[in-house]
Computed example of a mutant assay.
Amino acid sequence: MVDEQNTQFVPAVQNATRILRLIAASGRPQGATEIARQSGLSVSSVFKILRTLHQEGLITFDADEKTYGVAMGLLEFAIPLIGSSPGDLIRPALSAIAHDHGVMIALWQITQDDRIVLTDRFVAPGTVQVVIAPNSRLPVFAGATGRCYAAALGLDKAAARRGYDTIRWQDAPGFESYWQDVIAARDSGSAQDRGHLFRGLDMVAALACDATQVPRLAMSSITIAGQHSDDGLAKVGQTLADVAARIEHIVFGRPRSGPTTVDEREETECQ
């Protein structure tokens, strides 16, 4: 496991990365003052970082307009990823979640016939796990994933009820409880199913949509009930939601709507 609390990070690298993301996301050249305002850093610090990034060929500088933009040098880092499948890009992140939280992570493809199909799974060594056959299929409204699906589509209560009624629950949560979970998932980006779809299993899920808001991939933690505390499962859910947001932005090209990771949100709150 990675103990991030005791890991020493380099603020200069974090600031440079933040600035690169701001410039890339803006879609237009920006001046140092504007970048400083958006990043929450001092103008002098931003200016030094911008000069260094320009020297390294990662950003451009327009001497007439005094603005900075993305440069071809960034492609040097992207070339190894060109031609990779989404699964190849996602696997390292999901494998890290499995190891860091001691869970089994399932990656599902959301199909056009209202099903989710298991495409991959990741397990930390020594984890007591549930065995799921490759290409297993479940109804899209089932379990924790189903709550996220209804939330992502912005379904009203009647439409969510129709989806809920298609599921064979081993211990039905009741639609009102399911609906409250859907509402909560709209804000948190994740949802839980504690023994309702399958007795004895705790499931936590998040999903990634493409640029047109169509749900494409779902990620779920599936563990035997009692293995993790409520707080532990909540942390898994937040981590899955963070990764889903990154997948949406990097793989499917959805624009960022704000800070997505825990670290980025904490930085924003402190500014």
Rank of each mutant, 00 (worst) to 15 (best):
L81P: 00
P92M: 02
C148T: 09
G57L: 14
V2K: 06
A211E: 03
V236Q: 05
T268I: 02
L74W: 02
E34C: 05
L75G: 04
D193R: 08
Q180Y: 12
L155Y: 13
F77P: 00
D181E: 13
I23Y: 00
Q109K: 14
L81G: 04
F175G: 13
S42D: 12
I59R: 05
F198K: 12
S188E: 07
D3K: 01
N6A: 15
R168K: 13
V2C: 01
S42E: 15
G189T: 05
A208H: 05
N15V: 05
I97W: 01
T33L: 11
S136Y: 14
P125E: 02
T60H: 01
E65Q: 14
N6D: 13
I35L: 14
T212F: 10
C270R: 12
L41R: 07
A241L: 03
P259A: 03
R137T: 10
A12M: 09
R37Q: 12
I183C: 02
R37K: 05
G143R: 02
K66W: 07
L153N: 15
S42M: 10
S45P: 00
S85D: 02
A24R: 08
Y68K: 10
D181H: 11
A185N: 13
R186E: 08
G87C: 08
V131S: 08
G232S: 05
P255I: 03
G87L: 01
A16P: 00
D193I: 13
H196I: 07
A160M: 03
R91D: 11
Q180I: 10
A159S: 15
T260V: 07
G189K: 07
G83K: 11
A12I: 09
G163Y: 09
P125L: 00
L20M: 13
A244F: 06
A16R: 10
E176D: 14
T52D: 13
H54C: 10
